[in-house]
Amino acid sequence: MSAFYALLFTVAFLVLVIGLTKKIIQYSRVPAPLKIPVTPAPLSKGGVAVRLAKEAILFAALFRSNKWTWLFGWMFHMSLFIVLLNHLRFFIKDVPLPLVLLQNVGEYAAFTMFIGLAGLLIRRLFVARVKYISAPSDYLWLILLMVIALTGIVMRFVSHTDIVAVKEFSLGLLRLNWQALPTDFPLMVHLFLVAVLMILLPFSKLLHIPGLFFAPTRNQVDNPREERHIAPWAAELDAEKNKVQPK
């Protein structure tokens, strides 16, 4: 069983990294032929960085759009971020002080993560407009993440797992020196679903993570009167021979 999980995570990691890298390469190679920032837009690259940061960290547009979706969505994402930071301890031998301190509050992030996801699921089930646009996979993602959070909560607060042994296992993965993994049921479920999530991410709507930063509507500088913006495939159309020149 330990070998299966070790193999699963090695594969999952590779699929995640290679899949995501391929997508990012694709996004950066496809040209954005015309300036299409949604205005008012920043006039400098620094301004664009601030605009993207506000979207990535505060979900600014969603806040304007719908307060409930923002509340649950933001709660889920920020909790997930803290949870991920907390899990760094499984991959670092000597845990640095900031991570030790984070643990005190961080362990409750699983609850807020679960509540956020539950809120999103309820909205998806009961708001007719959102239900209309939902495919089966949209529900399954939420349920998958909820089960991951729930099994995590069970291991931390109900039936403790031998996390020292888990850490040996995860450190072993990094060193390609596979170690035994405790075989409690919640841990098995937790880890299996995390691996599923990692494998499916590059093939799913979870691509919104890189997508957010590649949206030309948000990442372009508003300077079209000052600078021309010719895509490689439009260069032929733009060639001098096609243009009337002043005599």
Binding site: P31, A32, L62, I133, K205, H208
Partner: peptide, 24 residues
Amino acid sequence: LLGRYRSLQVFMDSCIKCGACTDK
């Protein structure tokens, strides 16, 4: 068009069906 317009390629992938736009 997916190969010519980054907007189209990214927008096809990145919708999370959150519903924010549904009443706009």
